[in-house]
Amino acid sequence: MKNEAIRILQKKNKAILESWMKFQLLDEGLREDLMSNDDLRSQSEELLSALTSNLNDNNIEDAKSMGFEQVNDILASVSISRAKQGFSPRETGNYIFSLKNALLEILQQEIKDPQELYMQSIKIGKLIDSFSIDTFETFLRGREDVILRQTDEITEISTPVIQVWDGILALPIIGTLDSARTQVVMENLLQKIVETGSSIAILDISGVPAVDSLVAQHLIKTVSATRLMGAECIISGIRPEIAQTVVHLGIDLSNILTKSTLASALKTAFTMLQLQVTRKNVTNLN
C-alpha cells in the first residue's frame, strides 16, 4: 500500500510549490537583491520535484537513503551557492523551513483523519528537519571555504619581497607573525636572495602589532637562515612599545642588527655596501 501522504504530496506538487513560494515571498528575510524571484522559483521547483519524485514508502523516514541522493545534491549546491552569495544562516534556514510549512499545510487540507494527519506530519517534519541539518552543515562548510580561501590569499599577498637597491632587499611584514607565516616569509625571502644575489635583507616589522617571545623566536630564525645563505639581515621598524616588550621578556636580540626605521636600515645597508647618497650639486648647473 502506498503511503497516503506520499500520494498526496506527489499529486499536489503544483499546490505545494505555490504555497512554498507564498511563504518565501512573505518572509521578511527575502533577499531580492541577492536572488531574483524567478531564480528562486526555478530553484525551489527543482528541489521540490526531486523531493516528491524520489519519495517512497521505504525512505520517508531516512533522509540519508540512496533515493535522496539527488535531493541532497541539490540542497548542497543551493546552500553552498547561498553561502558564497552572502545569505545569512537565518535566510538559508528559512528556505528549508518554509518548505516544511508548505508541505504540512497541504497535508492538513487533504487528510481529514486527525490521527493519520498527526502521524504523517511527524514523518514529514522529521524528514525535512534532517534535510535542514544537512543544508546547514553544507552552508557552514561553504562559509569556511570562503574563509580558508581568504586566509590563503592574505598569506600569499602579505609577504612581498621588494628589491630596494641592487643587492638590498626589503620585506615589510604586516600583521601577526605565526609559525605558518614565518615559514612563507622565510621561504620567499631566501628564494629572492638566491634569485637576485642580494647580500642585505631588511625585515621591516612596523606593521607587526605585537612581538611576543614566539614572534621574536621566528624573527631570530629568519635572521639565522638569512645569515646561513650568506646575506646580512637588518630588522627595522621597531616601535618603542616593541622595544619595551622585547626587553621585558628578556629576549636577546643583541647579535641582530636592529634599526628604528626603514630609512636608517637602508642607510646602514648603503654603508655596508660602501655606497654613498649625495645631493646633486644644483649650483653647478646655473
Binding site: M186, E187, V194, L228, M229, G230
Partner: peptide, 17 residues
C-alpha cells in the same frame, strides 16, 4: 657558499645556526 634556501631553513629549524 651557495646554501639552498631549503637547507638553510632546515638547519635553523634543527637549531643549528
Amino acid at each position: 657558499v651557495g646554501m639552498q634556501p631549503a637547507v638553510a631553513i632546515t638547519l635553523v629549524e634543527l637549531g643549528l645556526p
